[in-house]
Structures are given as C-alpha cells and as structure tokens.
C-alpha cells in the first residue's frame, strides 16, 4: 500500500520567476541611444552614399524585436500557463510592445520601399518573404508559447490517463474484494482467501513484471502456487531465481511443483516454502514444509499423488525427484529437470 501513497506525482517544473526590472530596461535603452548617436556621427563623418540599403531597416528591426520580446518574456515567465497576457502587463509593458511593433512595421515598410534590384519579379517575391519572416519573428514568443502549451497539455493528459487506469484497476480489484470481504465478514476462511488472492494480484500489479506465463517459468510457478494457496487456504513463501520461456520439460516441472505444494498443503504444516532456480543447465525446485514428516519408503503403492504426479512426471522428462522426510521432521521435495534444447 505504502508504495502507492508515497510515490510523488511528477510535476512540471515551473520556470524560474523572472524579474522585470525597469532600471535595467532604461539602461539598455540608454545604450541603444548611445549607439544611435554613434551611428549618426559615423554617418556624418563618412557620408551615407556607400551605406547598404538594408542596414538601417535591420537595425530598426532588431530594436523592435528587443522591444516586443522583452515584455512578453517577462509576462510568460510569470505564468507559464497563460497565453493571454493582458492581465499580466503593466503600463510600460504595453508601451514597449506598442513602440516595438510600430518600429518593426516601419522597418519592414522601409525595406519594402527599398529598390535593390531591377527585376520586379525577384523583388516582389523576396520582399514578401522578408516581410513575412519579420512579422513571424515579432510574433515568435506567442508561437513558442503555444507550442509549449500543447506539450504541457499532452503531458497532463498522459498523467490523467495513467491515473484513471490505476483508479480503474484499484476499483476492479481492491475495492471489489473489500466489498466482498465485508459481505462475508463472518466467514474467516473466505476472508483469508479473498485477502490472499487480492494481495497476490496487487503485488503482481505493483512490483511484478507481469509476464505471460508461457513466456516465463517464474510466472508459471507463481500462478501454480497461487492456485494451491487458494485451494488449501495456506500461505506459501515462493522465491524464484532465473527465468526463461516455458518448454515442455519446464511445463512438466511446474506441474510437479504444483503437486508437491499441494501435498505439503494437505499433509504438512506451515510455513511452506517453494524455491525454484533456473540455471543454464537445470531447473531445480524445492518444496518444503515444517512437518510433521513421514517415512517416504512407506508410501503405499496406490498413492498416485507422489509416485505418478511428482516422481513419474519428472522422470519422464529426464529429471529426477527426491523426497527427504522422516517422521517428526520437515519434509522437502527436491525436483530437478535438465535443460535441453527444444
């Protein structure tokens, strides 16, 4: 349970709040003014004849970009979720935006009037492209914002979807079981069985690799043991090491394991433990109970459980089974099946 409640919901990191300092802004404007004066002086000194026609519109345009982007950047930085900035803007933000847009349009206009080539066709195409590009650049912050918001919304949707899936699973399993348990509160066996089955299910959901039993001998063993637990109302401590897809031999070993666990549940006392280890050479299983033990040589010939279902089954697949027990002690069934290519 605690794994669910303490797992923190991942949150989208909020961008650092940016400070919009007017003094910094005015200093920048001062710098721009100095640059402008320097430009005028340079123009005065060397004359404007050789100056390329695109230089002044370009400078104007860059100034306009600085003016339009900075207030938007500040406003978006404040609240990453809003597209509409009107509520976040202060008055000087509005002025900067307005002046910036005006400057930008002037710059583009200037460029449009510039007669840089004789070919009318080239000029109309290039000018149109440049103007579109310029307008696009001025509006870029909105554009970026919209893209980012789409991705934030998508993440939120994915999270919501996951949450809904978990809720649905918990509803179908845990909630149903709890309702059943409450209805059968007077029947301790039924309650124990329901609780055990639910615990197994929830464990598989929380920690399990949830493999297909055909693809995983570990899952197949866990399922077989689960059935025994339910049928005999016992708890079996199951540990598996190694894993591989099921083969015919492994299937037989799992079936024999189920029989051995059934026997332990029927005749032995808890705790019952099952250890299954799959190595490169063999699949070995040990099923152990805590007593009361019996004399393995004294198994009557008509007891098919052990002879047929455990020993016979394993031997038919090239393995062997041993039963270690003595009256008064623990019983351990050891199965071993060699791994063959199949």
């Amino acid at each position: 349970m605690d794994a669910v409640t303490t797992a923190p919901t991942p949150r989208v990191a909020r961008p650092l709040q940016r400070r919009r300092g007017a003094p910094v802004w005015w200093r920048a404007l001062g710098g721009v003014a100095m640059l402008a004066i320097a430009g005028v002086l340079a123009f005065d000194r060397w004359g404007g004849e050789d100056l390329p026609g695109w230089l002044i519109p370009l400078i104007l345009f860059l100034v306009s970009l600085a003016l339009t982007w900075s207030p938007l950047d500040g406003a978006f930085g404040q609240d990453p979720w809003r597209l509409d900035v009107s509520g976040l803007f202060r008055r000087d933000d509005w002025w900067r935006l307005l002046i910036g847009l005006a400057l930008g349009i002037t710059a583009l206009w200037w460029f449009a009037l510039w007669d840089y080539t004789d070919s009318m066709a080239v000029r109309s195409v290039v000018t149109t492209l440049v103007i579109l590009l310029g307008l696009g650049l001025m509006l870029a912050p909105w554009w970026m914002r919209a893209i980012r918001q789409v991705s934030i919304e998508r993440q939120a949707r994915i999270r919501e979807h996951e949450r809904a899936e978990i809720a649905a699973h918990l509803h179908d399993s845990v909630l149903q079981t709890l309702t059943l348990i409450r209805a059968r509160a007077t029947d301790p066996d039924a309650v124990a069985r329901l609780a055990r089955a639910q615990e197994r299910d929830l464990r598989a959901y929380l920690y399990g690799e949830r493999r297909d039993p055909d693809a995983s001998v570990a899952t197949a063993v866990a399922e077989a043991i689960g059935e025994v637990e339910d049928a005999h109302s016992v708890v079996v401590d199951t540990v598996t090491v190694g894993d591989a897809p099921l083969t015919e031999d492994l299937r037989a070993a799992v079936a024999a394991t189920r029989e051995a666990a059934k026997n332990a549940a029927r005749h032995g006392i808890g705790p019952i433990s099952v250890y299954a280890e799959l190595t490169a050479d063999a699949f070995e299983v040990f099923v152990r109970d805590a007593g009361p033990g019996f004399d393995p040589r004294a198994i009557p010939d008509d007891r098919l459980g052990i002879r047929q279902s455990i020993i016979g089954r394993v031997e038919r697949h090239g393995g062997h089974a041993e039963i270690h027990s003595s009256p008064g002690g623990r019983t351990e069934v050891a199965l071993s099946i060699p791994r063959r290519e199949s």
């Binding site: 401590d237 540990v239 090491v241 190694g242 433990s273 250890y275 280890e277 799959l278 190595t279 490169a280």
Partner: peptide
C-alpha cells in the same frame, strides 16, 4: 529472508554460473 537471498542469487549472477 528467503526473498532477499533469492535477489542476491539473481543479482550476483549465481543462476548464470
């Protein structure tokens, strides 16, 4: 616990020899 022992065998590659 038996389970921790199982993890250790898995983690140190005991099943792989």
């Amino acid at each position: 616990s038996p389970r921790l022992a199982g993890f250790v065998l898995d983690a140190f590659g005991a099943a792989g020899g």
